[in-house]
Design a protein around this nucleic acid. Structure first.
Lengths: 172, 172
DNA sequence: TAAAACTTTCAATAAATTTTGAAAGTTCAG
DNA sequence: CTGAACTTTCAAAATTTATTGAAAGTTTTA
């Protein structure tokens, strides 16, 4: 496989993969392109490489910046903005966990608290099942909240080292 | 908040939440409904409660069964099929991790291997960046593969116990 | 200040996904 | 068997989401 073929395949596959993760295809493709690009690219280069419009490129690059996966690079003496992706995959993963937690779990936790305070007779089977289910989900979410916070703070070495050893040890 | 209000809110919120996870709104709503339902429900009851068509109910219930989150309940002497959701949230989470791993990571790993074998001169900066990025993603994926396998096998007690203690200890 | 170089916005359009519902398929009691 | 009770399928329609591109906005240079 030549580099050109491999690049095209990686961009296509990363794009398809991204759609499973609440990230749209184009956003994931731009991310893929920047990940394998040795130098920062301009919006025009991204448009050209992926055959997408200016507006589309602009919006999705902005969203990648919001997610903390891409940053602007200003070159002295150039008007144009360039963009570059974080190449350290552990940092990328941690950043994604962090953002998704913020956008999903952190919003869900207060809702679950509210739902757990439903009024009604506990002897009513429907009430009982409802509150039990919500409380189980709450316990799970609170645990996930703590675990993810710690994971977000963890450095790569620790994550690769201790956690894996722990899992490996427990497997037997 | 009355039970009826709380049920409606939970179903709506769980549905919205699900769309972030590659699960469609209706599938997540049916799951929510069955989670809080004390008894198994028939397809007609699901249709009625969520105001959806027979075809829609049938397809999404089938998909929930594929995901291992819902199972059929046959009642002696009744033609109709009933459906019931796994209520243990830890089992639900493990099942989701297992299925997503199968549908995503397990498909990606061989693709990455293929991409890492790109031909070209390693002194070429474009080739170098490409192979380095792919190899970093491979390392990450291989690690995730092992970690997730162990997590899938882990029982709730262990997960709640040791892992959390470990994370808590490392936080300082 | 003017205008060139560039970025952002957003209404219209296109594409992708989901839903419907009627027809076809299946199962089972009589 | 036969038909009633139920489930499944799938093409067409509705809905949701993504994309375009031209106009508006911004910044810089001269």
């Amino acid at each position: 496989m030549t580099l050109a073929e491999a690049k095209a395949k990686f961009i296509a596959d990363w794009g398809r993969f991204g759609t499973n993760w609440g990230i749209n295809r184009t956003m994931a493709q731009i991310h893929a392109l920047l990940l394998i690009s040795p130098d920062p690219l301009s919006a025009d280069e991204v448009m050209e490489e992926l055959s997408i419009s200016r507006g589309n490129a602009n919006m999705n690059i902005r969203e990648l910046i919001d997610w903390g996966l891409v940053h602007k690079v200003i070159r002295p003496g150039e008007r144009k903005e360039f963009f570059s992706a974080e190449k350290d995959i552990w940092k990328v993963a941690r950043q994604i966990v962090k953002e998704r937690k913020k956008r999903e779990l952190d919003l869900m936790i207060p809702v679950l608290k509210e739902l757990s305070e439903v009024e009604g007779d506990k002897r009513d089977k429907a009430v009982k099942t409802f509150t039990e289910t919500i409380n189980n989900i709450r316990k799970f979410s609170d645990q996930a909240d703590k675990t993810l916070d710690t994971m977000i703070r963890a450095d790569e070495h620790w994550f690769l080292g201790s956690l894996v050893k722990l899992f490996a040890g427990k497997r037997d």
